[in-house]
Amino acid sequence: MASYIREFIARNVRNPQGYFGSWFAKNAFIKSNTPLIENTIPLVGIQPDHVVLEVGFGPGVGLEIALKHVQQGLGKLYGIDISEPMIQAATSRLGSNITNQKVELIQGDVVNLPFEDNMFDRVYHTNCFYFWSDHEKAAKELYRVMKKDSMMVTTMEKERVEDAQRRGFMKYGNPDVDNYVSCVEKAGFSNVKVENKCMEKSDAPFIVIYATAKKE
């Protein structure tokens, strides 16, 4: 029974599927990831006219918070997630903001982004990169769709993720920060910097990785 539960959790934290999988993932993500998301958005530096992409948006909490920064400007938020149940959950959460075209949600994979070159001013993702099927391809795709001098912000609760890995819940993820950083640099990103931070309310530790899309 214990191995079945670990397998169920491992599969559904990577790609929530089915009623029980999506219910578990949505509630688990909201409870565990919201504090990190709340601490991430201020680091992204979103301006009212920015076009912004969130990768792996889950139930849409991050997009809902980021929306406040573009609501009064010409900016727009895009989200891409591999899971259909997460698309549905985020659609329900964001409602009228999708109708008025301030937010657009897309089901897809970060290794094959359905966006034009040089499209985004900011890209961010939280507790996400370790589930990507190919870090090198994903990094190249993100670099491609970002504007010159735009910034990507990656955040991760490293200690919590490593604990989940030890307990068998990260069977389908690769939380190797050094590997991720190496792939980002190979893709062409500059000024790649890793910082250790603590959350404002709980003082829980997390890491943030900054990367700039320097282009000719």
Rank of each mutant, 00 (worst) to 15 (best):
V70G: 03
Q71E: 15
Q71I: 15
Q72L: 11
Q72E: 15
Q72H: 13
Q72S: 14
G73S: 07
L74D: 14
L74M: 13
L74W: 13
L74C: 11
K76E: 02
K76G: 00
L77K: 06
Y78F: 14
Y78W: 09
Y78H: 08
G79W: 01
G79Y: 04
G79D: 03
G79K: 01
I80C: 01
I82Y: 04
I82Q: 07
I82V: 11
I82D: 05
S83M: 00
E84S: 12
E84D: 11
M86G: 05
I87R: 05
I87Q: 14
I87V: 02
Q88L: 02
Q88T: 08
Q88Y: 03
Q88E: 14
Q88G: 04
A89N: 05
A90Y: 04
T91P: 02
S92I: 07
S92T: 10
R93F: 03
R93D: 08
R93C: 01
R93E: 08
R93A: 04
G95C: 08
S96K: 15
S96I: 10
S96F: 12
N97F: 15
Q101Y: 07
Q101G: 07
V103N: 06
E104F: 07
E104W: 05
L105W: 12
L105F: 07
I106A: 10
I106V: 14
Q107A: 10
Q107C: 07
Q107Y: 10
Q107E: 12
G108V: 09
G108C: 04
G108A: 12
G108E: 06
G108S: 15
D109P: 10
V111Y: 08
V111Q: 09
V111G: 05
V111I: 13
V111D: 11
L113Q: 11
L113E: 12
L113I: 09
P114Y: 11
P114H: 08
P114C: 09
P114V: 02
D117L: 00
M119S: 12
M119F: 15
F120P: 08
F120E: 07
F120C: 00
F120R: 02
F120H: 04
D121L: 00
D121A: 00
R122P: 03
V123Q: 09
V123N: 02
V123E: 06
Y124S: 05
Y124Q: 01
Y124P: 02
H125D: 02
T126W: 01
T126V: 15
T126S: 15
N127E: 13
N127H: 03
C128S: 15
C128G: 07
C128F: 14
F129H: 12
Y130H: 15
Y130W: 13
Y130G: 10
Y130Q: 09
Y130V: 07
F131T: 10
F131V: 00
W132V: 09
W132D: 08
W132R: 04
S133R: 13
S133Q: 11
H135K: 13
H135L: 14
E136Y: 06
K137F: 02
A138V: 05
A138E: 09
A139R: 04
K140P: 00
K140M: 08
E141A: 08
